[in-house]
């Protein structure tokens, strides 16, 4: 196994770890807004690391471009969907959880 493949595998594991942390955040955070934070950031970094890891395994440029494109589209979707859900929640008058409210 080459060094690039080894580094690729390490990045895949790191990416999975961030997805795990994001999911824990989704389950543990107290309200819709903080949960969206967990999702948006975990998607961004977790998927970014996984795409980087796969790039090191990619057989050619065409595959590499497709992988980067997947990341960019997922980022745009995650930021836009997060914004829309948060805006809807606020317009419905859902108050944000404040420190001291109890968990």
């Amino acid at each position: 196994m080459s060094l690039a493949e080894l580094l690729g595998d390490a990045l895949l594991v790191a990416g999975a770890a961030f997805f795990f942390a994001g999911t824990v955040g989704l389950l543990r955070f107290p309200d819709v807004y903080t949960r969206l934070h967990a999702l948006a950031k975990a998607d961004n970094l977790g998927l970014g690391l996984i795409v980087l890891g796969l790039l090191l395994h990619a057989p050619g440029w065409a595959t590499g471009i497709k992988l980067v494109l997947i990341w960019l589209l997922a980022l745009a979707a995650s930021a836009t969907v997060g914004f829309l859900i948060a805006r809807r929640a606020r317009r419905h008058g859902i108050a944000p959880w404040r420190a001291g409210d109890g968990e």
Binding site: A21, G25, R98
Partner: peptide, 15 residues
């Protein structure tokens, strides 16, 4: 975000 999620007490101060 990972640190907030995995800490025993998240310690969020949102607003």
């Amino acid at each position: 975000v990972a640190a907030f999620a995995l800490r025993p007490r998240p310690g969020l101060r949102p607003g």
